[in-house]
Simulated assay, not measured.
Amino acid sequence: MIELNNINFQYDDIPSLVDISLSIEKGESVGLEGDNGSGKSTLIKLLNGLIFASSGTYFFEGKEISKKTMKDELFEKQFHSKIGYVFQNSETQLFCGSVKEEIAFGPRQMGLAEDEIEIRCSDVMKLLGLTAIAERAPYHLSGGEKRKTALACVISMNPDVLIIDEPMNGLDKKSRVVLIDFLKAWKSAGKTLIIATHEQSLLNELVDRIVTITEEHRIG
């Protein structure tokens, strides 16, 4: 499903990813680990088509993801409907007037009927315990509520791949349990899951395989 071949990326001539090759199969759960600055977040951005390699190739479902291919608006829209990304800092994903509007935004951009959007919003809010704050403005939410809202926005799109950067950031104990249960259900449903985290216990509980990005920025 995902195929990276000899990927290199640099910020202002400073290497961030060096000679990365990685394959992820459909339905696989993969953990990404590595020290701060090892390139985990950079790799996730590249997987989501937010940045592009300076050299090497990235294929998703057999189609190359590059600056050129992502200039096609239809192709880009289809790609982003299949791969969902929850940022490490959830606030950067929230910009609407209420939690419900946030969750409805993606499905509405997909052109879904309003009845279907309403069903998706209701189901996702119930799943993540957000119903009671549906009309609350995102900037009034706690860190954990923002985290769950950002996740709800992504899963309302029903992507094939879910990528989460440090999923437990800002969550209290109850919210952690809710999220872990959800991720287990996602995995059981045969969906692809990619988690970047420093929490070894979380990786041990949720993923089939752990990929380590070493200090030399090579996958080990």
Rank of each mutant, 00 (worst) to 15 (best):
A132Q: 15
E102W: 14
I133L: 07
P15A: 08
V86I: 14
H80I: 13
S38R: 00
R218L: 13
G49T: 04
A113I: 01
K71S: 15
V86H: 08
G56I: 10
S142R: 12
L32Y: 01
S23T: 13
M168R: 03
D160P: 04
T131N: 09
K146V: 06
S55Q: 12
I103Y: 13
V30L: 05
I44N: 03
K191G: 00
N6M: 09
E116G: 08
V207M: 10
A189H: 02
T192K: 06
S54M: 06
K126Q: 11
R120P: 03
F52Q: 01
D35Y: 11
S81P: 03
L202M: 09
V161W: 05
A196V: 06
F87A: 09
K184P: 07
G37C: 01
E76C: 14
I163R: 01
Q93N: 02
G34F: 07
C96R: 13
Q78R: 12
V154K: 04
M168V: 03
V30W: 08
L206G: 04
I133A: 05
G170A: 12
L47H: 00
Y139T: 04
K126S: 12
K40M: 01
V18T: 15
E91W: 07
G34Y: 05
K82L: 15
L46W: 02
K40N: 02
L128P: 03
E101A: 13
V154H: 01
N48M: 03
S41G: 09
T42Q: 10
E205H: 10
L22N: 04
K187P: 05
N89C: 00
R147S: 00
K71A: 12
N48E: 07
N204D: 15
G62H: 08
H198W: 04
S41N: 09
T131D: 14
E116P: 02
E166L: 06
G39L: 09
I219Y: 09
I20A: 04
G111H: 01
I163Q: 04
H140Y: 14
L50K: 00
R136Q: 14
L151D: 06
K40T: 05
R176V: 15
E25V: 00
Y85C: 10
I219P: 04
F75Q: 10
G62L: 00
D181V: 13
Y139K: 08
